[in-house]
């Protein structure tokens, strides 16, 4: 459905996007992960046509994206923005109409999303008088109100309370189930892991890893949790293919490189005293992300 193909954007000496490519299929939730300044926002702005790429192109349903196609996209920008002095419902109706909805459909959709996102009592309130959390909900409604064919959400979870996060997760799953491709970025990697079908990891303007979380895991080794209460600090330091992630309550978390035999690790642990637990875990997305961007933070 959505194909980003070799998109490149340069700001002076900074290469914000370096041949960024990825695909998002119909009904797929695609998580876009990367540090601050990695190029996520620039890529999304290019998809929405807010910025023009220096090279590469964006295709939707097989055709290069033009103005008419972009009208049907839904966008939640990283820097939130609404008319501060406009009332919630008026604002949503206006945005729906700008996206091509006729007046009746715009009113219906605005009312529906106001109710769905729990904003009914605020429908006639000026946006600037709402709490920050409620402003976020209005912003979300603004991305959804015209029944978009593609959703691009930049950090949609930031600033949401836990209840709103649940509502958003539900909405995104629902949209995907209806066949809408959803691209979103987030720093909350546990959420991305829980929600996304596929993940793209971007660093320094380049996509450094991509695929389903299971694909990323394959060939990335595993995480080993060793419960050896009597073990001295640094007991696992010299072992081949092993990186110590951290020690907590006598439990040592180890990153084991792919193809490493785990028995020497067990032997080393037993040499320190009793071993009460020895468990392989799937690496979390957060750990995979650190592998991919090459930052050893723990």
């Amino acid at each position: 459905m959505l194909r980003v193909d070799g998109v490149t954007k340069r700001y002076g000496d900074v290469l914000a996007c370096d041949r960024v490519s990825f695909d998002v299929g119909a009904g797929e939730l695609f998580g876009f992960v990367g540090g601050n300044g990695a190029g996520k926002t620039t890529t999304m702005r290019i998809v929405l046509g807010v910025l023009a790429p220096d090279a590469g192109e964006v295709r939707f349903r097989g055709a290069p994206v033009d103005h008419a196609a972009r009208r049907r996209f839904g966008y939640l920008p990283e820097e939130r923005g609404l008319y501060p002095r406009m009332r919630v419902l008026d604002q949503l109706v206006y945005l729906a109409e700008l996206h091509g909805a006729d007046t009746n459909a715009a009113h219906r959709a605005a009312e529906q999303w106001v109710a769905r996102l729990g904003l009914r009592e605020h429908r006639d309130t000026e946006v600037q008088r709402l709490s920050l959390g409620n402003q976020q909900r209005v912003q979300l409604a603004a991305a959804l109100v015209h029944d978009p064919l593609l959703l691009v959400l930049d950090e949609p979870f930031s600033g949401l309370d836990p209840l709103a996060v649940d509502v958003l997760v539900e909405v995104l799953r629902e949209q995907a189930a209806a066949g809408v491709p959803v691209v979103f970025s987030s720093h909350q990697l546990d959420l991305v892991e829980r929600l996304c079908d596929r993940v793209g990891i971007i660093k320094g303007g380049r996509v450094v890893a991509g695929g389903t979380v299971a694909q990323l895991r394959a060939g990335s080794g595993s995480t080993l949790v060793v419960d050896a209460p009597a073990a001295p600090a640094g007991w696992a330091a010299g072992l081949a293919g092993v990186t110590v992630l951290g020690v907590h309550n006598g439990q040592t978390r180890l990153r084991v490189a792919p193809g490493t035999d785990d028995q020497p690790i067990l032997a080393a642990a037993l040499a320190t005293g009793p071993v009460r637990g020895f468990t392989h875990q799937h690496p979390s997305l957060a750990e995979l992300y650190r592998d991919a961007v090459g930052v050893d933070s723990r």
């Binding site: 702005r45 929405l48 046509g49 807010v50 103005h67 972009r70 009208r71 996209f73 966008y75 920008p77 820097e79 939130r80 923005g81 609404l82 008319y83 501060p84 945005l95 700008l98 996206h99 603004a142 991305a143």
Partner: peptide, 17 residues
């Protein structure tokens, strides 16, 4: 300036030239 400072211009320009 209001549209710029409130950043609403970003979602507007995603649909309007």
């Amino acid at each position: 300036v209001e549209e710029k400072s409130s950043r609403v211009v970003e979602i507007l320009l995603a649909t309007v030239r």
